[in-house]
Design a protein around this nucleic acid. Structure first.
Length: 507
RNA sequence: GCCGCGUUGGUCAAGGGGUUAAGACGCCUCCCUUUCACGGAGGAAUCACGGGUUCGAAUCCCGUACGUGGUACCA
C-alpha cells in the first residue's frame, strides 16, 4: 500500500530565513501539494541553538507571505505534535537506550578536554582532523572500552555522558537519493556521531530520524550539506527497525555566492547590496539588521518564481509560473544536482515581469504604503491611475515613489542643464503663448498634443525641441510617461503653475 | 589530508551518442519613442582538461583539475 505523501520542513533560524532555507521549504511544499500530500512544519529549537526571540512567528510570517501555509504546526494543531523539538525531548531518550541495549550505540563519558586531547594526539599531517571512530573509540572512556561495573559506577555517580552510534566496520551503505540516484558510503570512514547529548537533548541525527518516523514522514528533502551524514541516518532507521517506512530522501543543491565561491551568506548581501532574507530580520537601524526581499519591494509571487528557477525547470522555455502551475508541474527529477550562483539582476527581472503584468488595482494597494511613507496619501482612484501609467517602468515596488511622486507633488528640483544650453527667447514666447491658449483646448492628451504641435508649427519651432522643456517643467527630469498624459492628469491649473514657475527660473 | 557531491557562454540553463549546441538574465548595436521605460530586430560569448569506447562523444567509461559540502555534545 502506498503511503500518503507527508513532507516536513524543519527550519532552525538562529537568524532570519535566507534564500536557501526558503527554497528548501518551497521544494518541500511544491512536492507535497503536487502529490496532494501533507506539508508539515517541525520546529528545531534545541538548547544550543535556541530560537532567537520572535523567530518562530517570523518563520510563519515568511511562509504566509510566500503563500506556503503548513497543514499542521505549532499553531494549527494536528495529530503528530508537539512540533517543537524542545517539547519532544522525553521521546528521544528511549530510542537512544534501545540502541545501546541492542549494541548499536554506547555511552561515552569523555569530557570536552579529553576529546580535544584525543584530536591533538592523533593529529598528523595526513589526518588533520581525527574522528571519534572505530580506531579511536577503544582508547576513549566509554561503555565499549570500560568494564561494565565501572560504566555502571560512572552512571550512578551522575557522570555526564553522551550516547554515540557505533559505526560498523567494512560495510558499504547504499541509498537512493531522488535527485542523485545511488549514493554510497563506507562505514569505517564515518565517525561515531553523538546521538544524545549530555543535557539529554538529541542531536539532529537522532531527532530527525525519530521525528520523521513518529510523524510518518514519507519524503524528506534538505540541503546538500546533509549528504555526508546520511549514512548515520540510514543506519538509525535500520537499527530501530523502521527501514520499511524510511522516507525517500532528496538532497537539494546549494545556493552560492554570485561572485567568488562558497555558500551564499548574509554577509554577501551586505557586501553586494541585495537581500538574502525573505523578510527584514532584526531591528532596523541597528547593526544586526538585514533587509528582506519583501521590504526591498519584491512581490511574493516573483520571489517564489525566482527561487524555484534556481535549480529547477520544467524542461520548456517557460520561466514565469504561478504557484498553481508550479504545483502542477513540479517534479523532483528535474531538480539540478549542482549548486547555482545567485544573480540579483535576474531576480529583479522576475519582479519587473510580475509588476508589469500585475493587476493594477491590487498593485495599487501594495504601492500605497510607499507613498504614505513619504506623507503622500492620494486618492485611491488617482493613485491607481498613476500606477497603471508607470508600472512598466518600475522594477521594485519601491520604484513607484520615484517614478510617480511628481504626479502628486510639484518637483522642487529641475534638471535645468538639460534644456538651458538650447533655451531661446522664442521658446519662452512659445510657452507663454501655450499657456494662454490652454483655455481653448479640450483637456485631454490627444487635444493637448495637437494644440502643442499646431502652435509649434505656427512659430516655426520643431515640436520635438519643445517637448523636453515641457517635461522638465512638469516632471523635473528626463523620465516618466507621455508628457501630454502627465499634463492631462495634473490638470490645467497645476500644469500652468509648473510651466510658469520654471519660466521664471529660466529668465 | 580523508570522504561525499558536482562541473554546458559572465549568470540561470535545455539537450544525455549524429543538433547550425535551445531559451532567459546581463552586455553591445539598430528600430520604435525627440524623455525614461516597454516593445521589436540583430550581435558577441559556452560543452573544464586528458585518455579511452565508437564510423561518430557535450552526451558513455576512466583519470586529472577545479569547485563545493562534510569531517562538532551546530544544525
Amino acid at each position: 500500500m502506498e503511503r500518503k505523501v507527508r513532507v516536513r520542513f524543519a527550519p532552525s533560524p538562529t537568524g532570519g530565513l535566507h534564500l536557501g532555507g526558503v527554497r528548501t521549504v518551497l521544494f518541500n511544499y511544491l512536492f507535497a501539494r503536487h502529490h496532494n500530500g501533507d506539508f508539515v512544519l517541525r520546529i528545531e529549537d534545541t538548547d544550543q541553538t535556541r530560537f532567537v526571540e520572535g523567530a518562530e512567528s517570523y518563520i510563519n510570517e515568511c511562509l504566509k507571505w510566500c503563500g506556503m501555509v503548513p497543514d499542521e504546526g505549532p499553531d494549527a494543531g494536528g495529530n503528530y505534535g508537539p512540533y517543537r523539538q524542545s517539547e519532544r525531548k522525553p521521546m528521544y531518550r528511549q530510542y537512544a537506550e534501545q540502541l545501546v541495549q541492542q549494541g548499536n550505540a554506547y555511552y561515552a563519558f569523555d569530557t570536552p578536554q579529553e576529546l580535544e586531547a584525543m584530536r591533538e594526539r592523533l593529529k598528523t599531517p595526513a589526518n588533520p582532523s581525527p574522528q571519534y571512530d572505530h580506531n579511536a573509540r577503544m582508547q576513549m572512556k566509554n561503555s565499549l572500552s570500560l568494564p561494565a561495573a565501572e560504566v555502571q559506577q560512572l552512571i550512578d555517580a551522575g557522570t555526564p555522558y553522551v550516547v554515540r552510534i557505533k559505526m560498523p566496520e567494512n560495510e558499504t551503505l547504499v541509498f537512493h537519493d531522488m535527485i542523485r540516484g545511488e549514493v554510497s558510503f563506507h562505514t569505517e570512514l564515518v565517525d561515531d556521531k553523538v546521538l544524545l547529548k549530555g543535557d539529554g537533548m538529541p542531536t539532529y541525527h537522532l531527532a530527525v530520524v525519530v521525528d520523521d518516523y513518529l510523524m510518518q514522514i514519507s519524503h524528506a528533502f534538505r540541503g546538500e550539506e546533509w549528504l555526508p551524514s546520511a549514512p548515520v541516518h540510514l543506519l538509525l532507521w535500520k537499527y530501530l527497525g523502521w527501514e520499511s517506512v524510511m522516507p525517500q530522501w532528496a538532497h537539494l543543491p546549494l545556493i552560492l555566492k554570485p561572485d567568488g565561491h562558497g555558500k551564499l551568506s548574509k554577509r554577501d548581501g551586505d557586501r553586494l547590496g541585495f537581500p538574502v532574507f525573505a523578510m527584514n530580520w532584526g531591528t532596523p537601524g541597528t547593526e544586526n539588521f538585514t533587509e528582506g526581499f519583501r521590504e526591498r519591494g519584491f512581490l511574493p509571487e516573483a520571489f517564489v518564481n525566482m527561487l524555484v528557477m534556481l535549480g529547477w525547470n520544467d524542461g520548456t522555455e517557460q520561466e514565469i509560473f504561478s504557484m498553481e502551475e508550479l504545483i502542477q508541474r513540479f517534479s523532483m527529477d528535474r531538480v539540478h544536482k549542482g549548486g547555482a550562483k545567485f544573480d540579483f539582476e535576474k531576480a529583479k527581472w522576475f519582479n519587473h515581469e510580475y509588476i508589469k503584468h500585475y493587476d493594477t488595482e491590487k498593485l495599487t494597494t501594495l504601492v500605497a504604503p510607499y507613498f504614505a511613507a513619504k506623507n503622500c496619501t492620494p486618492d485611491t482612484a488617482q493613485l491607481q491611475q498613476v500606477v497603471g501609467m508607470i508600472k512598466e517602468r518600475c522594477t521594485l515596488l519601491s520604484d513607484f515613489w520615484q517614478q510617480g511622486s511628481f504626479f502628486f507633488v510639484r518637483p522642487t528640483e529641475h534638471n535645468i542643464d538639460a534644456i538651458k544650453p538650447k533655451w531661446t527667447p522664442e521658446k519662452k514666447t512659445f510657452f507663454e503663448t501655450l499657456v494662454s491658449r490652454f483655455d481653448t483646448l479640450d483637456w485631454n492628451a490627444a487635444a493637448l498634443e495637437q494644440g502643442f504641435k499646431d502652435l509649434a508649427t505656427e512659430q516655426g519651432i520643431k515640436p520635438g525641441e519643445l517637448q523636453l522643456p515641457l517635461r522638465i517643467m512638469l516632471v523635473g527630469d528626463k523620465f516618466g510617461p507621455n508628457v501630454f498624459e502627465i499634463a492631462t492628469f495634473l490638470g490645467k491649473e497645476e500644469t500652468v503653475a509648473r510651466i510658469t514657475a520654471l519660466l521664471q527660473q529660466l529668465a
